[in-house]
Amino acid sequence: MPHIWCPGCGHGIVLNSLLRAVEKLQLERNDIVMISGIGCSARIQGYVDFHTMHTLHGRALAFATGIKMAWPLLKVIVPMGDGDALAIGGNHFIHAARRNIDVTAIIMNNSIYGMTGGQHSPLTQCGDHATTAPYGTVDSPFDVVQLASAAGASFIARTTTYHARDMTRLLAAAIEHKGFSVVEVLSQCPTYYGRKNDAGDAVAMMERFRDETVKVTADGAVPGDRSGRMDGAHEPVPVGLFRREERPEYCEAYRTRVMEPALEQAQSAARDVSP
């Protein structure tokens, strides 16, 4: 059966890359849990043969936190859309990043709310049109990479559906990374974002991902001197791996710094009272 996404929807390419990443890592399907929220992005979970959970709008990372804490050996993958990750779920996102819990967050950024029919999102560029922004969006968008960075995520990458090979590589690296990993994928919504903004079809939107992005260098820096640009010219969007660092992972830290000392104390207290 064909999937539910519209023709040309970038979310299908994310599914495609994700399946390849999992295959590349040779993970056991029984060891993977995929927890999604609500929206077009959340439907990705219905097309994979893992343990899957379709939760509440914006709350997927909170559900994921409970599952990971209760069963730390599971690989937990959380696909999210603009609203899931950064509007209604923004708080869970920054706190999951702060804790550095070992969860892979995939943010499928299509700059629009697709499931409800094309409303502006916290990732819609200022001035873009949407059904709830008929005069153009007044709000400024988040920069997911900077937000994740400030919140403390230990793995941060951005890619696009055009760069499908990079996406597979980055998703595999993110899943392997021990800690909170964020992969932002610029994904096209030709049906709503494209039509509302005269952005053309899926191909035209992907060509823009190709032409209006710049790959970061190995150390995460954006090439070229970008200082002193005051003319408002369109800046290319940096893509690639921005951060990969070792930092204590939350479940591990809880085990070694809380549970083991507490168990030890409890056992020695029990020895003290026994006759």
């Binding site: 059966m1 064909p2 999937h3 519209c6 023709p7 040309g8 390419i13 030709p190 079809d201 899926a202 191909v203 992907m206 060509e207």
Partner: peptide
């Protein structure tokens, strides 16, 4: 063919 939705991405690239 059953899954193809004719988005033209493969053709274009």
């Amino acid at each position: 063919r059953h899954w193809c939705k004719g988005c033209r991405i493969c053709v274009a690239f």
